[in-house]
Every structure is written in C-alpha cells, then in structure tokens.
Amino acid sequence: MAFFEARNLHKRFGSRVVLENISLAFERGQVSGIMGPNGAGKTTCFHVLTGLHQPDRGEIELEGKSISGLSPQRIATLGVSRSFQIMNLFDDSVVIENVMLALPEFRTRRLSFLGGVFDDTKLVDAATDVLDQVGLAARAWEKATSLSYGERRALEIGVALAARPKILFLDEPTSGLGSEATRNLAALVRRLREHYTIVMIEHDMRFLFELADRISVIHWGQVIAEGTPAELQANKWVRRSALGEAALA
C-alpha cells in the first residue's frame, strides 16, 4: 500500500476524454514526477488527485483511507497541499502575511480588532519558520511584489507548506524560471524532500530526471510509461533525444 494511491481514475468533459483508467502510487518520502506532452491531462490529473475535480470513476487513498469525493478543503486538512501553474499570491501584502494567512492557526484564531496579526508572536514565529524552509526568512517584511519571479515561486511553495501537509503537489514549479532560478528551485526541492512527500508535474525533463525517484509519463490521458529516471533513460529513443544527450554529457 503506497502512501498516496489513485486507482483507475476516469474523467471526461463532454465528449473529451481527459483521464482514462489512470493508476498512480506515490511512496512516503519520495519525489514522484509526472511528465507528458501539452494537453496530455497532467493538470486535470492533479485537480482530480487534490479534489478540485471529482473523478467520474476511480478511487483515491491517502495512507490507506479513501479521500475520493471529499471537498478540496477537507482533503487539504487531511494533509494534501498543492501549488498551481498560475501563481496565487497577495501582491499588496508583505511576504510573511501571505504565509500567515495560510496557517491553520490563523483560520482558527478568534477575530480580534484590537491586536493586529503581526502582534501575534506565535503566528509570526510559525510563518517565519515556514519562510525559513523556503529560504525567504530574510525577505519576510518586504512586499510580495518586490520578490523576483523565482522567489515568488518559492513563496508560493511556502504558502502550500503553511498548511503543514503530509504530501505536497507542485504543478510545473519551473515554468517561467530562468536557469539560475531553476537551480535554486532544485536546491529547495532537495531540502524539502527531507521532510515531505513531493509530487511534481514538470515539463523540464532534465530537472525532473535529476530530482525524482520515480516518474510517470502521461499521454492521451493514460500512464504510458513508468519507472526510475535510469529506467526511463535506458530507452533508445530517449537516449537519442536532447534529454539523452544531456544525461550522457
């Protein structure tokens, strides 16, 4: 029994088949990668795994317990957190505030018009701890807009971590990043994997092959290949591709 498991997922939108009989298993403490051409169904797959879309058929389990049919909020409180391809940050707020708003204790905090959130040292400490994990503690009191694109991506991961998830889903974390920002992100993922189970959709195959323990290739709404990076790279056509050349270099 894997830590997080999806079995025989089906999803259609009208006559368009987006997922057809997809089964995936993610092990605790591993980085699992999902890759596939544009339009192959990767993001829909994430939406279904994290409860944003209900599957037409199929089962999803976290630590052996079914989470199929639960609301995204309920699934999040059970320990499933995710980032999106398009960043969702509060630009006018300071960095730390973005994280504070996502802390579970912020939501349970009693409404108080007297003391501001920044006077709540427990909240500030908890948020600082999260920012420390994503390397942004020194920028805590700057406006979110002052961050570079790569730092904003790190902050978004921080927002996802604020919920203290058991498993973290990242949707194309390198999208829009330059080579230096991508290297920084790879270092961040390496640090995070010590504490979290991570699932990443990624277009940058080099990034994924370097970081993932196992990779599932999705195409036509199905898992067409699966394996460790080494197993997938052994394929003759992969060796002939730009990816193969990079691996040999």
């Binding site: 195409h219 730009a242 990816l243």
Partner: peptide, 15 residues
C-alpha cells in the same frame, strides 16, 4: 506528434 527532441517517442512506442 513524434519529435526527437523530448524523448516521448520511446515512451509512446513502448506503450
């Protein structure tokens, strides 16, 4: 779509 750049050909043929 077969293109030799990304290596997906190999995965498609295996499928």
């Amino acid at each position: 779509q077969f293109n030799t750049q990304d290596g997906y050909i190999g995965f498609m043929l295996d499928f």
